[in-house]
Amino acid sequence: MSDESLIRMSQSGDNEAFAKLVQKYSTDAYRTAFMVLRDREEVDDVVQEAFLTCYRSIKSFRMESSFKTWLYRIVVNRCYDRLRKLNRENAAFNKLSLNLSIGNGEMDEIESRIDLKEVVLGLKPEYRLVLTLYYGMDFGVQKVADMLGIPAGTVKSRLNSARNMVKERLLVNPL
């Protein structure tokens, strides 16, 4: 059944239809939040709150965007709220500096990839989110921009930065 049908049914009080939306999108919502927060307890809360928020305002949802975009945007905003509260950004920046300073020409492909994962995890959350949605979940630039509520140019700029960074790293540590 299409999202639009499920939404219309939810809007007319069909709770089963909303439960189907939950089942359809909870996994991706969880993974997206986890890529930002890296804390299961926090992620549990964020995803639950996001679905509750959707549920409470489903009647006013006007199909101007997809349910998925709407849900992701709520998830992302909740993640940012949590990050602000947890003040984890400084730690993330420190970690990034640390990772970028590691250079070892003998790493094999797997180690290089693990290292790259650490670099990704050390990126600022907004960069990590763009990479997660664009590369990890195969959304297009405009869709990512809609989900994050930022201009498409900003998404492109972040993708370019990440790509250029990886390009330079691969020059030093080819896979």
Partner: peptide, 30 residues
């Protein structure tokens, strides 16, 4: 670089274990 990022990000996202109780938890809250 683009292919590497795609591969790494796919691995990272797919490797996140989602708790079985997630839907149950959300539905309980609902």
């Amino acid at each position: 670089a683009d292919n590497t990022l795609k591969k790494v990000m796919h691995e990272m996202v797919a490797g996140i274990e989602v708790p079985n109780s997630l839907n149950e938890r959300i539905e309980t809250a609902l």
